[in-house]
């Protein structure tokens, strides 16, 4: 926890889904986890391990069956603008709005005057490298650009934390690396609390201050947490990066195998 007090805390959280077939599915069992206020926390795990369930509960889309989730000491109940979500798919953008109108959406809902929200939206579009694309519709932009709109949209809304559910998973390898670097740059500037879901060790090591490795589902929980001591500028080819990679890999290896059994 790097010494600071917990900003987000999962306390013995279990989530069971009721299935139509009558056989309930326990996605997460007795998960406890603390995340600091200025932490970039990566939740890493094989497919189907319940990573997204953890994020959905924190976002307020799902409720824990057992246990509590607290943010800044208050129990999470439903969604809230302080917990912004960046989705994996750009289906979350509004195709009938332009890039800037998408970014303004949250401010518009709050009733922020037009001039002010325009100004904020322009600023955040610039921050994510989309200056000059304000009046394009999402469908006119590439996959990477659409994810940039999503990031600008949540940042403009001034949240206390970002929840990111494999936001770069659908991008091509080159674009993904570029987006990781951009996100790293933005995070170093804003130092927001981030919960980032990924199955990519490389991505986790590029971005995170700590990495939580999840067990293979069902009834998953955090297997172990690894501190990432790699400094500000991270380079995949450096020895300490490779050493970290090995440690994470050792932890996740058997979970990946179990997930494919």
């Amino acid at each position: 926890m790097n010494g600071s007090t917990a900003f987000v805390s999962f306390e013995n959280v279990t989530k069971t889904f009721k299935a139509i077939s009558g056989v309930d599915y326990e996605a997460v069992r007795d998960l406890s986890l603390d995340i600091g206020e200025h932490e970039f926390f990566c939740l890493l795990g094989p497919t189907g391990c319940g990573k997204t369930t953890v994020l959905n509960m924190l976002a307020g889309f799902e409720e824990p069956s057992v246990g509590t989730i607290k943010v800044a000491g208050a129990r999470v109940k439903g969604t809230g603008p302080e917990r912004a979500v960046v989705f994996q798919s750009h289906d979350s953008l509004y195709p009938w709005l332009t890039a800037i109108e998408n970014v303004e959406f949250g401010l518009r809902m709050k009733g922020v005057p037009k001039a002010e929200r325009r100004e904020r939206a322009v600023r955040y579009l610039k921050l994510v490298g989309l200056g000059g694309q304000e009046n394009k519709h999402p469908n006119e932009l590439s996959g990477g650009m659409k994810q940039r709109i999503q990031i600008a949209r949540v940042l403009a809304n001034n949240p206390k934390m970002l929840l990111m559910d494999e936001p770069f998973a659908a991008l091509d390898a080159q674009t993904r690396v570029l987006m990781q670097q951009e996100l790293r740059r933005i995070w170093l500037r804003e130092k927001l609390c981030v919960l980032f879901i990924t199955h990519d060790i490389d991505e986790a090591l590029t971005l995170a201050t700590r990495i939580g490795v999840m067990r293979a589902g069902p009834a998953s929980a955090v297997k172990g947490v690894i501190d990432v001591n790699l400094g500000e500028q991270r380079d995949r080819t450096q020895q300490d990066f490779v050493d970290h990679y090995r440690r994470v890999y050792e932890m996740i290896k058997e979970e990946v195998l179990r997930a494919h059994e």
């Binding site: 979500v85 989705f87 979350s92 953008l93 509004y94 959406f105 949250g106 809902m109 949540v154």
Partner: peptide, 20 residues
């Protein structure tokens, strides 16, 4: 995700209906 995004961005049920 369109609905969920609007909720996390602070849209009220009425706004969700009208704007999404």
């Amino acid at each position: 995700d369109k609905i969920r995004a609007a909720r996390t961005l602070g849209a009220s049920p009425a706004q969700l209906f009208l704007f999404v």
